[in-house]
Amino acid sequence: MPITQDFEYHKPATLAAVIKLLGQYKKPAILAGGTDLIAEIKEGVTAPDALMDIKGLADLKKIEFKNGKLTIGSLVTFSQLIESKLIQSKFPVITEVAKMVASVGIRNRATMVGNICSAVPCMDSGPVLCAYDAVINVKGAKGARKIAIDKWFLGPRKTSLKKGEIVTGISIAIPDKKHAGCYVKLGRYSGEDLAQASVLILAMPNDTDRIAFGSVGPTPIRARNLEKLLNGHKLDEAIISEAKQLILKTVFPITDIRATKEYRMHMCQVMFERGIKAASNRLAGDGPPYGHNQI
């Protein structure tokens, strides 16, 4: 199917050049992996007048860890995240998330930054970044700014990125304490699927947890009410049961072609329970290995 739209293509060599070019078009789009963008252009979902291919910017290809802070550049693909020894050792739950994104041929191209810029509700990267209190690094003609993940997602396909700006990367401060995590994703079968619901748990010592849901609301949901309920309590059946009731007031799934609201709600409870058990067992050193879906 040929692309019928017209657009110009640029491959700037510097970030400054990108920012300059962004100002010269009405509807420019940043092209990194292109797995969302090209499909959307083909189907007419989006119609940019210019594509800025940023793959010439070597600095954005890096995964860095300095002073307790992880930075994932805008060109870092999911495959790079999976293969990174640094991520595997310090942020294994990010490896777990990345492995559940689509399939190899997509992951070799698709980037985590692209995932949160597309900001479709079923994205896999949202919950983990919410749980880690990630910060999005943005640059524009007026300079750089940092956007907390809580303020990043504004709605389906809507972010707080302004016209003329580009995301350069995502920063995550490693929690002070030792931590473990678990990502549970609901698909219609074992193979590649878009999440119908997802939950990400970060478990830390002294019964403190961070919890985020994906695909059960217009944006990812950091479940601070659940965290408040759970934190400081030993994880027993009573508190899990209470938490599962609270989930009903925390997530807002809809019924669509992929699943009903009812099943999504039910699965949020099941996935939360399995996820938090797996995460706390991992923290204790006897959990299931990373990389396997708990459902």
């Binding site: 292109g34 797995t35 090209i38 083909k42 190899v104 041929g105 191209r109």
Partner: peptide
Amino acid sequence: RGDCGTCTVMLDGRTVRSCLVL
């Protein structure tokens, strides 16, 4: 649209969906 994998080629040694690459 990247769902089926029949257009797979290698780009610098890694498989990609050639239907989603310009």
